[in-house]
Design a protein around this nucleic acid. Sequence first.
DNA 1: AAGCGTTATGTACAAACGTACACTGCAGGG
DNA 2: CCCTGCAGTGTACGTTTGTACATAACGCTT
Lengths: 181, 181
Amino acid sequence: MSERRYDPNRRQRLIEVTLDVIAEHGVAATTHRKVAQAADVPLGSLTYHFKGLDDLLAAAFTKLADETADGFEATLAGAEGPDAARAAVAALITGDMLGERRNVLLTYELYALAARRPDLRRVTENRMARSRAALARHFEPATAEMLDALIEGLCLHRALAVIPMSAETVREAVNRIVGPL
Amino acid sequence: MSERRYDPNRRQRLIEVTLDVIAEHGVAATTHRKVAQAADVPLGSLTYHFKGLDDLLAAAFTKLADETADGFEATLAGAEGPDAARAAVAALITGDMLGERRNVLLTYELYALAARRPDLRRVTENRMARSRAALARHFEPATAEMLDALIEGLCLHRALAVIPMSAETVREAVNRIVGPL
DNA sequence: AAGCGTTATGTACAAACGTACACTGCAGGG
DNA sequence: CCCTGCAGTGTACGTTTGTACATAACGCTT
């Protein structure tokens, strides 16, 4: 046998690499072999660490959802007062967690897959509940609901548009939803 | 040979069936054979009418984008005056063209695919340009931009949320973006 | 009716896939 | 030092995939 790697928490690394592969090729073209090659591990390593391809995808998307929800909560938790809360929401959209093109694309892949898989459906529902709750600490329930949707729409448009919406317009949109100070 | 069908514009019907298959199984699991079975045509019929699977998907998503853009324009074109324009925007979101769960899911599949395919990228860009232009006939440019993103976000949330946002809240969100009458 | 180009079909094939499984190297206790 | 159990690997197999292609039926002109 060729060489044997000492590679603790390889499982965790495989999950991260899987997200990279999905971001580059899409769920449709994500295979055991592509992930194995990208992570530089033998093919058998994947079936050893994960029950199957579905299991691998579920682990990857769960990590994505958890991390983006963490970033969402952290940004909003750091804001004190209504003024800072508005700035935090705008920062979420233009920032490099939710707003990052890679993460936006991955999120669509997740939504598309979650539509047909109950386990992933729960992942998206949990993520939505967390973002909603984080917003509700600063805004009224109805406003939080609208903001949640606005954030999603703005992230999508900034990731897809040829000329992304300016940060200034993003701030203005948030202000209009939240209302006058 | 068994039986031969008289089936004019089969090509068109195949495109429609393809959208159904994508909606049910996702792009990742859409194959020549599934579409052929769903449309009740022989396998060879697909390679006859379309250059390949990519071509078929492109045709299907182009049809989706065109139809939703048509609906978008038609609804907004029928509105006269700012008041009607607001109602039209709300109707788009809660209506059965953009707002329909099936179409929302298909649109995510499209976005996910378009991220990696220039031809489909142009399809989404064209659709966005049309919706933006339709909004710009009733609202200021910056407001149209915000509304466009809001519509997208609200459609997504209504399709994915366990308890979809009420039509009342949708109207309120639109009003806040557009501003006081 | 006979020929002919277009439309349409069934089949065959190579490539790529997920996954099972026999196997190998390593660590730790006896 | 040997043995045993587990972590990790390579390969092989059956299935499904996209697509090419030889063939067949049809419509139309002659």
